[in-house]
Design a protein around this nucleic acid. Sequence first.
DNA 1: GTCTATAGGCCGATAGAC
DNA 2: GTCTATCGGCCTATAGAC
Lengths: 193, 193
Amino acid sequence: MSREAILDAAEAILRDEGYAAVSSRKVAAVAGLKSKLVHYYFKTMDELFLALLRRVEEQHFAELRKATASGEPLRALWHLSTDPTVPKLHKEFVALATHHEQLRQEIARSAQRTRQVYAAAAESALIVAGLSTSMFPPVAIGMMLDGISRVLSTDKILGLDSGHADAIALVETLLNRLSVSRCEETTDAQQQI
Amino acid sequence: MSREAILDAAEAILRDEGYAAVSSRKVAAVAGLKSKLVHYYFKTMDELFLALLRRVEEQHFAELRKATASGEPLRALWHLSTDPTVPKLHKEFVALATHHEQLRQEIARSAQRTRQVYAAAAESALIVAGLSTSMFPPVAIGMMLDGISRVLSTDKILGLDSGHADAIALVETLLNRLSVSRCEETTDAQQQI
DNA sequence: GTCTATAGGCCGATAGAC
DNA sequence: GTCTATCGGCCTATAGAC
């Protein structure tokens, strides 16, 4: 279907060249269509961006659902967030959202939902580990995981990887503590590292 | 001086409207000059972006030096990284760097230097607190601080603030442990919260 | 250093044929 | 649904006057 081909092309250009390069002409060229057709399916370019964002979000939440259905939701979410393909698109959409109100609202809603998923996973992990959720607010744990994965992905885009092994090891240590231990077993968990 | 006025204007547009909006015409208009003058000082727009990046980096490293000269470098760096004005420019430059090799190299070098500053601050804080730097790699601690401040700033751009108070409180808790305590005093530090 | 003028290109969006 | 053709606009960069 042409509509999907247009979205595929737009996604590729957005990922590879940035939002400024996503023009109706270039999208059409990549999709092997004529530019008029882009305007046939999407009255404006803003509409195209919004449709693409929604498609990306659907895939994203489908993956979140799979992760939360696994035995260790928090660890599954962490591994999901270090997938290198997602953050590049995400960065472009956030940059676009800065000066596009409708996209801003859409992406804010999505970020909010994602945060709740992470917080819920962190909360159940904390409870299982017998740790205080008031000392370690689940939402804050989720934000830390999110944050460190963003640093890792931005670094990768810039061609840096110094400190990455240490950071990943630290996160794994903390995840192990949450999944393996209750308070009393913390020392054992530490010795695993 | 016209050159500085041009850079000021470019910086304002980059911050407020994104890199796609930084054109020689618009820069000139904001600076109250004619567009030809922009090309007189900067042969190409790429040159302008590079010059602006270098100016921003100089200010950034001046602030880093001030922070590391303070009594609590790690805490000073944390407060610096939550300053809302810096990350918006930073995001735009990273987005630009994705498809501009010279900017990519420049910003990668700068990110690398910044990381070392954070890691050094984290290392001395860990040593003062009597904590193992092999269990908690300083560079990873720095990356966590960096990451959480990025999540906070991205959220702010999107108009979100749920979980922010919790995340900031958690970071402050951890910073307090590092600055106040040695191992034995951890319990006291926790009770302060 | 600062200006006017302009070449040459890509852009979004539309009109209207088939 | 798909096409050709085109308008009007903004862009970078340059030539050349003062």
